[in-house]
Design a protein around this nucleic acid. Structure first.
Lengths: 343, 343
DNA sequence: CCGAATAGATGAAACGTTTTAGCCGCTATA
DNA sequence: TATAGCGGCTAAAACGTTTCATCTATTCGG
């Protein structure tokens, strides 16, 4: 069906085009009788606003985008749900884009979003370092809020969880359990989350000044499959060098490690202890319930969305803010085995 | 920055407006020298196409939407990834909308998508029965493909997995294990998936003609939390009436049940056997690895996207198709306990 | 060397809104 | 009675593209 437009509605109701627009946008400025006539015309013609035309006129759309590293990662789905809630309350629409930890895909998405003149972008960027794409958006006046990534940059807001602290918490815990050979599993290191959590762990180790050592095994991504492969590598080591505990950059990796170790006959935590990160819903339901560093996921999303809307409303008067949440260690069976001296 | 438009580019390059458009859309029709001049102007001005204007002209956008019941459900995230792949290859963009099993939100999303004149919609609808919103979209010429929902309807394509068969597989398996009191956990029943899986289970029971019984416990949603609550209810039953096996409408519920039962001191599968549905990645990593009915998730998404694009291209000549995949039972520890007569 | 074909570029119309300036008829005020 | 103010409405411009009919050189075949 050739969709009816505002002009046909006007003709059908015997009013001018501008009046129909007023009925739609400022109903109180038009007399009740005419208003009703217009509304009737709208329903009989099945008229539906054309958003392209509105946007064109307005100069920007009413949608907000969130670009995440992995749509299938429960951490991000929770962040998305938090953001969604706030955005929808504001009458806007949230579209979810998946960069898949791939810079090229991220760039492509940002280009498309820029063409669409989106109202704003929430993003967990793939890399750290300079981000020309994001700067371009900001130059164009599109608000950008960094999610799960703190920054000192003055030209954008951010919400984050203190990943260095999170790394510390996990490492301190494992050291407290007496572990001497510990591995950090995660990657790619270009992800700031991965790097920061490692930095925290390394710092905790340093502070102790003991003989414990931290080996790093870099994975290609933060998925269950990557965790499985990483576990295989650990198992390939001579037993005397094999870590007695692993700290994983996220829970998906931890679950992969757990699966692979168990499949190969090792016991968790007796042979190898595991601490994950994110405390996703499935951590608690795992074969051995997983210790994990918990992040306030949906609050992260909600706050990010609020900052974005605030910036979009207030325009130039806006002062960028950087919100940092504190993580929290949740200890479960995967790391809790009481143990004495370890060798 | 006031964004540069095509006219300024034209002026800057000393050509007409139409020529710039040609450079953008049909580069081969313009002389190399001018083309280069235009391209230079584009980069120096930082010109970015305005998609609203393009859409307005074209009459429809280049984005495709997928409306899912729950963004945080791993089943749907996998479907989304499958669809995404196909859509992006075609140079379009996939936006993910979350109905949250809520009819009102679903309707709101569809209205917004209609206003946006999206190229097409992939959707797992909340209810069964007539779907006026979808029919409206179709009337307007927007292709709709039903995901995970077969239908005899002639005015749309669909991809689905045979849920009745899936229910049968699960039930047959549990009956084979000698269970006599079995519960089906899932809801709301308005979800066709939930209803069909139950129908399959009931049919399997009928076919046996034995004394086994199937109790139904309806949950409010398909989440881990709902599963926990359902398990509590089961535990409230007198022991002699308590089911010895439960078949869950999806894996999230199954994981919730597993968690709650374990927390209350029951053993799985010794005291209660569990079979889930979807075979999500975490089923295998659960405390007790979960038996589950596997669905080809990303193929579901891929196929749906392909059907949609096909319809969008071919227009009127399109013949609607209904693709049905077969599910497959994956037996793991949660239901595998060898057992004799059961009482 | 002429007419026709052709490559390359142009100008204007169209897509469907929102917004703004202004018009008309009426009432309240001076 | 003249004027200002106001509610209700209209007409037209503007947003930034794409497309199509048209125009102008240039080239080609004869």
């Amino acid at each position: 069906m050739a969709t009816a437009n505002i002009k046909e509605v006007a003709r059908h109701a015997g009013v001018s085009l501008g009046t129909v627009s007023n009925v739609l946008n400022r109903p109180d400025t038009v007399a009740p009788a005419t208003r009703q006539r217009v509304l009737d015309a709208i329903t009989t013609l099945g008229y539906v606003r054309n958003d392209s035309a509105r946007q064109l006129r307005a100069g920007h759309s009413r949608t907000v985008a969130i670009v995440v590293l992995d749509v299938a990662n429960p951490f991000f789905t929770d962040v998305v749900r938090g953001a969604e809630q706030v955005i929808e309350e504001a009458g806007a629409m949230l579209v979810v884009c998946n960069s898949g930890e791939d810079r090229a895909r991220e760039r492509r998405h940002l280009e498309l979003l820029e063409e669409q003149r989106v109202r704003g972008v929430l993003i967990t960027p793939v890399g750290h370092g300079p981000q020309p794409n994001l700067d371009k958006l900001i130059d164009r006046g599109i608000p950008v809020v960094l999610v799960d990534r703190g920054t000192g940059r003055a030209n954008r807001c951010s919400v984050a969880v203190d990943d260095v602290l999170g790394g510390r918490l996990a490492m301190d815990h494992l050291l407290d359990q007496g572990h001497q050979r510990i591995a950090y599993l995660g990657g790619p290191l270009s992800l700031a989350q991965v790097a920061d959590r490692h930095a925290g762990a390394a710092a905790a180790l340093d502070d102790r000044g003991g003989t414990a050592e931290l080996r790093v095994a870099v994975t290609t991504s933060l998925t269950v499959a990557a965790g499985r492969r990483a576990a295989e590598e650990l198992l390939a080591l001579p037993v005397r060098q094999r870590p007695t505990a692993v700290f994983c950059a996220n829970d998906l990796i931890a679950l992969g490690v757990l699966q692979e170790l168990t499949a190969r006959g090792l016991r968790v935590p007796a042979d190898v202890a595991i601490v994950g990160y994110d405390d996703i819903e499935f951590a608690d339901a795992a074969a051995v319930p997983l210790s994990s560093v918990r992040q306030p996921r949906d609050q992260l999303g909600r706050t990010a969305a609020e900052l974005l809307l605030e910036e979009a409303e207030s325009g130039d008067t806006h002062r960028h803010r950087h919100v940092v949440f504190q993580p929290e260690l949740v200890v479960r069976r995967s790391s809790e085995q009481p143990r004495r001296a370890r060798r």
